[in-house]
Amino acid sequence: MYYRTTYSSPVGTMTLACDGDHLVGLWLDGQKYYGGTISGEMMEKSCIPVFKAAHNWLDSYFAGERPAISQLPLAPIGGEFRREVWGILCEIPYGEVITYGDIAKRMAAKLGKDRMSSQAVGGAVGHNPISIIIPCHRVVGSNGSLTGYAGGVQTKVKLLELEGADMSNLFVPKRGTAL
């Protein structure tokens, strides 16, 4: 059984999902792949302790603080490859960005391979079920393109600005999947 609640944020209403003990989802309304990792119905139930902890974490984050991801019991649902990529996302410091190619190199080394497809990494990043907390918004194209954010490129910009990221070498693509 999965439970859900909502959170009103400066970037829009979010739905949070849990299994009772662990946060398993956080999606912006209208986000691509919204609820995609949850099979079955989610029952509305706001009084679960993990939701209170997540709300407090998000309050701190949107107040410009830098709460630790480790403060929350996360259990994103996905295959081993995706979970490994999401683990790398959790290591990206606030206000910093990493490229899909950089993650691909790290994954290749982890898996003992010569190389790894940036597109495979992009698929894992794009299907991150716990947006913002697992910071997929900190991943950019190799040329500084703010591409590939399931919550929309303008949300990605707002989150990076909130974190104080250096935006001088980053740009919004004129065309692409982020728009």
Rank of each mutant, 00 (worst) to 15 (best):
D102F: 00
P93K: 05
V50W: 04
G79N: 15
I88F: 14
G78P: 14
L72F: 11
G25K: 04
L58T: 10
K110L: 02
E44T: 12
G95L: 03
K32P: 01
L58D: 12
V85Y: 03
L58Q: 05
G78K: 12
K32S: 12
F81P: 09
M116D: 00
H127S: 08
E96L: 08
G35C: 07
N128G: 00
D114Y: 02
G123D: 03
G35L: 05
A124T: 00
L111D: 01
Q119C: 00
V85Q: 03
S117L: 01
H127L: 05
I88P: 04
V125S: 01
L111Y: 10
I98A: 09
S46N: 14
N56Q: 08
G35I: 08
V125C: 02
G126E: 00
I48V: 14
A75K: 15
G78F: 11
G122A: 07
Y33Q: 10
A109S: 08
Y34E: 10
A120T: 04
R82F: 09
M42Y: 06
L111C: 00
A54P: 09
G123K: 01
W86M: 08
G101R: 07
K32F: 11
P93A: 04
W57L: 02
T99I: 09
Y33M: 08
I77V: 15
R115M: 00
E65L: 10
L74Q: 11
A75C: 14
G123Q: 03
G126K: 01
I98E: 09
G95F: 03
M116W: 03
S70A: 15
Y33I: 08
A108F: 03
A104P: 04
P93D: 07
A63N: 13
P67R: 07
E44M: 09
R83A: 15
F62N: 12
E84C: 13
R115G: 02
H127V: 00
G79M: 05
G40W: 02
Q31H: 09
C47W: 06
N56F: 03
D102G: 11
A68P: 06
I69E: 11
E41K: 11
E44D: 13
G87S: 15
L58Y: 04
F51Y: 10
I38D: 05
T99L: 07
A68M: 13
N128R: 02
P73Y: 08
P76K: 12
V85F: 04
K52E: 14
G87V: 10
F62E: 12
E91N: 13
W27D: 15
I98L: 07
Y33S: 12
A68H: 12
N128K: 02
Y33L: 11
E44H: 11
S70C: 13
G35E: 05
K32V: 14
